[in-house]
Design a protein around this nucleic acid. Structure first.
Lengths: 207, 207, 207, 207
DNA sequence: CATGAATGAGCCTTCATTCAT
DNA sequence: TATGAATGAAGGCTCATTCAT
């Protein structure tokens, strides 16, 4: 059982470094943050960092993977309902509450850095996109279910609507990074109205 | 009149550099792209670049400013209608058609790079945010007008809804950078249905 | 003709760096010598070195190529005679005088470093070996000619003898790096006796 | 007697490490080979290596010493004959058969690395040279004996000829590292002819 | 105006060595 | 004895920027 201690320690240190890396990267961006920054934040020696991660990019990769995992498990719980329309709302609300939780400020910033980086770094794109797709599909599935019970009109393409809603999430997250003090509750309220068909008057005004 | 010629030449060269910079940055990102890359793309000497721009950041700034200007003029035309609800649709459609135009692939990528960079570079943030705000306000104004004529329910906070809709735009633009081949027309259709209240069945299904 | 000045300057600087590199490398070996050492020896900035050579290995390669070229031209002059046996002596003497010239102390040391490095660095081997082979062949050719005129016995394989003689050159050069003060003239004399058949008594001693 | 076991164990482990080091160094060179490489090759922990050797250089030194010892005992057996000329041939043949034995490929490469390193590392030079000198002297002694019995002409300086012959050995060994498939038997034959005065026709051709 | 050589700060990474357990 | 985590000095290389011509 000797390796067990070692492995535990290994995992602990890795998390310690990743935590420091998340703080550092989200503060300074992927490029401006140096290994030196991370190591200071982790209160480790420079060599120690390289003891647990081969390269800076490996750290970034591990961070991405870890957050993707966290987010995924978060979403999975939100699509278990029977009613598609409810699932949709649940997913949206879960996403919003995830991004508004105080601990998420860092994650939101980091996400934006990764989204940008993915355009230029295939490895990151390859990690990012496959993590986004299931989200899109969960949304589409919910829409399809909503159509099945007559809540959503059949004309709409579930995947297209999923794109729109997912886009809204992404876009709100971005705005949150820009203005952390923005009123996300109000936005959520408006979004809920829109997603339940209560936003627009059903009849044209008697113009 | 010598300076006039000079000024014209100056402006011409600046645009030449900025064009090259847009191509370079959107291809390789803000950090991975070097002045050398830009100068090669512009077919200029390295010194020439520094002749027209003091620093790399100045180039980025000029690019940002230029695109912001282009976008703004684009939007301004879309909020001139009388009907708020129509203005909303116009704005959204204009935004979408701007981002889907073939020349915009570059601009979309560049935008994402700038959004990320703005989190870390106050100067970019200071340029970016003031350009985004009017867009938000144009949307809010359209919502307010829609409320005034009874199209939108009065409970919704126009600014919050503007956040949501603007977010959708941002998020769709991101998805476009990730998957340039995505079906934006379908998304637009779904979005239009949502923004005209035709997406959801007004009555609960007779379950 | 603008590039001409530039090219001249370029070539000049490259030589300046290579000269400094030869001094540095031959003094400290390939691995212990840093770019910093070279740049100090060349009285240049660190960046300047990289302006003219992409990597440290490129510098090493350029050095090797340059010395190979110098050596080759040196040998070529020594195999122009009509008589094979004389050519052989000429080649050997030329080689020896090349390696004993006072400026060659550096080159000899450098050569040994390169020979060792070639075992581990294919690129160096690929440069080294093709430069050695013609030398071997020039020797073999001289032996063949000596056989043709009856000077050398026909039983000997010219290539094998070339290996032996070339080996002698290599081995003397090594000893020279170890003990620069060794008496190479005496060695040359002994070698000449051996290569002219005057070393051994033709008849067995009347034991 | 506890220490005795311990000492045996110590010696065993040291040899295990040296064996691994020889394989590693001869494969990758002195500088490119890391302690990590050696420890993996030895299937030992990193700490263990440092338990038996204080520094990397100590390992190199121990290797050098060990091979020097092996070579020396090898040569000693070859100079026991009565006849100087025969001793000379014996020494040469012994040297050649030592370097051509299949197990020697590694040793040959390692030797070249050490020869190069000795130029830069006094400690290695101090180990190397005193091991080479006796070889030189054995050769010189054989030559002197050959002169004594009238086999070799008295004009030749025995030490100089020793240099030449030793050089030939070194140079053939180098060529062997460069081209392990070279025909050393042919070279040996040519060398034997040369060392017995049978290579050159005693009389000038009747030109 | 234009050129591109020169500068040097700074970054990622490697690796010999130490040392707590 | 044995282990391997930790250390930190050092090196190769990049690149924004300057400046002499």
């Amino acid at each position: 059982m000797a390796p067990k201690v070692s492995e535990e320690h290994m995992e602990e240190r890795r998390q310690q470094i990743l935590d420091a890396a998340v703080r550092s990267f989200s503060r300074g961006g992927l490029h401006q943050t140096t290994i030196e920054d991370i190591r200071l934040e982790a209160e480790l020696s420079r060599g120690a960092v390289y003891h647990y991660f081969k390269t800076k990019e490996d750290i970034i990769d591990a961070i991405r993977e870890r957050s993707a995992g966290q987010a995924e498990s978060f979403y999975r719980d939100s699509s278990g309902g029977v009613d598609g329309a409810t699932n949709l709302l649940n997913l949206v609300d879960a996403t919003l509450s995830l991004m508004t939780s105080p601990e998420s400020a860092e994650a939101n910033r980091l996400a934006l850095f990764l989204w940008a980086e993915s355009l230029v770094n295939q490895r990151i794109m390859d990690g990012q996109l496959p993590a986004f797709k299931p989200y899109l599909e969960a949304l589409a599935k919910a829409v399809t279910e909503a159509q099945a019970v007559g809540r959503a009109v059949p004309q709409v393409d579930p995947r297209a609507l999923a794109r729109v809603i997912a886009g809204t999430m992404l876009g709100l997250q971005i705005q949150l990074t820009w203005e952390p003090e923005m009123d996300m509750d109000a936005a959520e309220h408006a979004l809920d109205l829109m997603l339940t068909g209560k936003l627009w008057s059903s009849v044209e005004p008697s113009a």
